[in-house]
């Protein structure tokens, strides 16, 4: 029964979006459904947070390996969530100083802002930066011009890497104006705008065809994989 209702909901919500794009009088259907979706997305954030807490609490209670770090995760999670919810250190809005909770949740100087600025921000950005090291190591170990295709990939990477820095100017800046198209910075632009554009455009068109077909299948109930195994 739940599955049947789910299929109907999928059909109705999907076609409300499609219809709103084609018929002006029902444009607001799309807006309303999308707005409900947005609220649901925010509830999903809370669900995600709660789920994370659940997983780590289970890990702690079962004393599974690394449970101490799960405890730390729970500590950081609870502390950040609590100070954010209480708006600890947030001053009220200037216009409404009597309403204690009227200020911005992440106002400068608040505890929530502190966690963002000094914990989340450096941690996430360093994690992303870490990849520079691993890309270098992987390129040294695995980037081999074994055949024409690999050589093309490698040659393009060289041109882009050199052409998008001052190295391009140093290496090929001496070329006369008539041969300026051979300068590395111009070659890099040519690769990006023509060859890369063609390759990525084909990928975009292919994906678009796939997404459109898959969306139709889902809306029409032909693809029910998202409902899980039938019971």
């Amino acid at each position: 029964m739940t599955r049947q209702i789910a299929l109907i909901i999928t059909f109705v919500s999907g076609f409300a979006m499609v219809a709103s794009a084609f018929f002006k009088p029902v444009e607001h259907w799309g807006e309303d459904v999308a707005e409900w979706f947005n609220v649901l997305a925010a509830i999903a954030f809370v669900l995600g947070a709660a789920n994370l807490a659940k997983v780590h609490l289970e890990k702690i209670s079962s004393r599974s390996p690394g449970w101490g770090y799960s405890g730390l995760t729970i500590f950081f999670f609870t502390f950040t969530f609590a100070v954010g919810l209480m708006k600890l250190g947030v001053h009220p809005m200037d216009k409404f100083p009597a309403v204690a909770m009227s200020g911005e949740k992440d106002a400068e100087g608040s505890a929530f802002w502190w966690m963002y600025a000094f914990v989340m921000s450096p941690l996430t950005s360093t994690m992303f930066a870490l990849l520079a090291f691993f890309v270098a190591s992987a390129a040294f170990r695995a980037f081999r011009a074994k055949n024409v295709e690999a050589a093309l990939l490698l040659g393009t990477a060289f041109i882009v890497l050199l052409g998008r820095t001052f190295a391009g100017v140093v290496l090929t800046g001496w070329l006369p104006e008539s041969l300026s198209f051979l300068r590395l910075e111009n070659l890099a632009s040519l690769i990006l705008e023509v060859f890369n554009s063609a390759g990525n455009r084909a990928i975009i068109i292919g994906i678009a065809l796939g997404v459109a077909a898959q969306s139709l299948k889902i809306m029409l109930g032909l693809d029910r994989s998202y409902l899980g195994a039938s019971n």
Partner: peptide, 26 residues
């Protein structure tokens, strides 16, 4: 900020204030 990804874009393409009801200061 508004939650909802492209769904927010769908709304603001026809009715901006339905999605962004308040500013960052409330």
């Amino acid at each position: 900020f508004q939650a909802g990804n492209e769904s927010v874009l769908k709304v603001i393409s026809t009715d901006f204030k339905q999605s962004f009801t308040v500013d960052a200061r409330g």
